[in-house]
Computed example of a mutant assay.
Amino acid sequence: MPREITVFGALMPTLMLVLIVAFIVQIGIDWLMSHLHLYRYVWHPGLFRVALFFCIFSSCGLLLHAV
């Protein structure tokens, strides 16, 4: 797996793209959980959102760089 990719002539680390993808996935999961009213079962929704983002980001990054 390449460490950097070229975007419009600028080198970007691949983890930057993983960060963007994880953010989009987290927005989708957050929207789904709020529409299903699942945040009423969570003690601290803000902390849960941050932890969910880091879980998604780290798992995608590990999957990407482990291959």
Results as ranks from 00 to 15, higher is better:
residue 2 P to N: 12
residue 3 R to F: 06
residue 3 R to G: 10
residue 3 R to Y: 15
residue 4 E to K: 14
residue 4 E to M: 10
residue 5 I to C: 09
residue 6 T to P: 05
residue 6 T to H: 06
residue 6 T to Y: 13
residue 7 V to H: 01
residue 7 V to S: 04
residue 7 V to C: 01
residue 7 V to I: 08
residue 8 F to H: 12
residue 9 G to Q: 07
residue 9 G to F: 08
residue 9 G to V: 05
residue 9 G to M: 09
residue 9 G to L: 07
residue 9 G to S: 10
residue 10 A to Q: 15
residue 11 L to E: 15
residue 11 L to H: 09
residue 11 L to P: 08
residue 11 L to I: 13
residue 12 M to G: 12
residue 12 M to K: 07
residue 12 M to R: 11
residue 12 M to Y: 11
residue 12 M to W: 08
residue 12 M to A: 13
residue 13 P to L: 15
residue 13 P to D: 13
residue 14 T to R: 02
residue 15 L to K: 11
residue 15 L to Y: 12
residue 15 L to E: 14
residue 15 L to A: 10
residue 16 M to E: 12
residue 16 M to F: 15
residue 16 M to C: 13
residue 17 L to I: 07
residue 19 L to K: 06
residue 19 L to M: 14
residue 20 I to F: 07
residue 20 I to V: 11
residue 20 I to D: 12
residue 20 I to G: 04
residue 20 I to T: 15
residue 20 I to R: 04
residue 21 V to Y: 02
residue 21 V to R: 02
residue 22 A to G: 11
residue 23 F to G: 05
residue 24 I to R: 07
residue 24 I to T: 06
residue 25 V to E: 03
residue 25 V to F: 01
residue 25 V to C: 06
residue 27 I to G: 04
residue 27 I to Y: 10
residue 28 G to P: 00
residue 28 G to A: 04
residue 28 G to Y: 03
residue 30 D to K: 01
residue 31 W to C: 10
residue 31 W to M: 11
residue 32 L to Y: 14
residue 32 L to W: 05
residue 33 M to T: 15
residue 34 S to L: 10
residue 34 S to E: 12
residue 35 H to C: 07
residue 35 H to I: 05
residue 35 H to A: 04
residue 35 H to Y: 05
residue 36 L to P: 01
residue 36 L to R: 12
residue 36 L to T: 07
residue 37 H to P: 06
residue 37 H to C: 15
residue 38 L to S: 05
residue 38 L to T: 08
residue 39 Y to S: 06
residue 40 R to I: 15
residue 41 Y to L: 09
residue 41 Y to F: 14
residue 42 V to H: 06
residue 43 W to Q: 12
residue 43 W to K: 10
residue 44 H to Y: 12
residue 44 H to K: 08
residue 44 H to N: 13
residue 45 P to S: 01
residue 45 P to G: 00
residue 45 P to E: 00
residue 46 G to S: 09
residue 46 G to E: 07
residue 46 G to D: 09
residue 46 G to K: 02
residue 46 G to H: 02
residue 47 L to D: 09
residue 47 L to M: 09
residue 48 F to A: 05
residue 48 F to G: 00
residue 48 F to S: 04
residue 48 F to I: 04
residue 49 R to L: 07
residue 49 R to N: 03
residue 49 R to A: 03
residue 50 V to H: 08
residue 50 V to L: 10
residue 50 V to W: 13
residue 50 V to N: 07
residue 51 A to C: 08
residue 51 A to S: 06
residue 51 A to W: 05
residue 51 A to Q: 08
residue 52 L to E: 00
residue 52 L to V: 04
residue 53 F to E: 02
residue 54 F to Q: 03
residue 54 F to V: 13
residue 54 F to G: 03
residue 55 C to Q: 09
residue 55 C to D: 03
residue 55 C to A: 15
residue 56 I to Q: 00
residue 56 I to H: 00
residue 56 I to L: 10
residue 56 I to C: 01
residue 57 F to E: 02
residue 58 S to W: 10
residue 58 S to E: 08
residue 59 S to L: 09
residue 60 C to T: 05
residue 60 C to L: 10
residue 61 G to N: 05
residue 61 G to A: 10
residue 61 G to H: 02
residue 61 G to K: 01
residue 62 L to H: 11
residue 63 L to F: 07
residue 63 L to A: 13
residue 63 L to K: 07
residue 64 L to D: 02
residue 65 H to G: 11
residue 65 H to K: 12
residue 65 H to L: 07
residue 66 A to L: 12
residue 66 A to R: 08
residue 67 V to I: 14
residue 67 V to S: 14
residue 67 V to H: 13
residue 67 V to P: 13
residue 67 V to A: 14
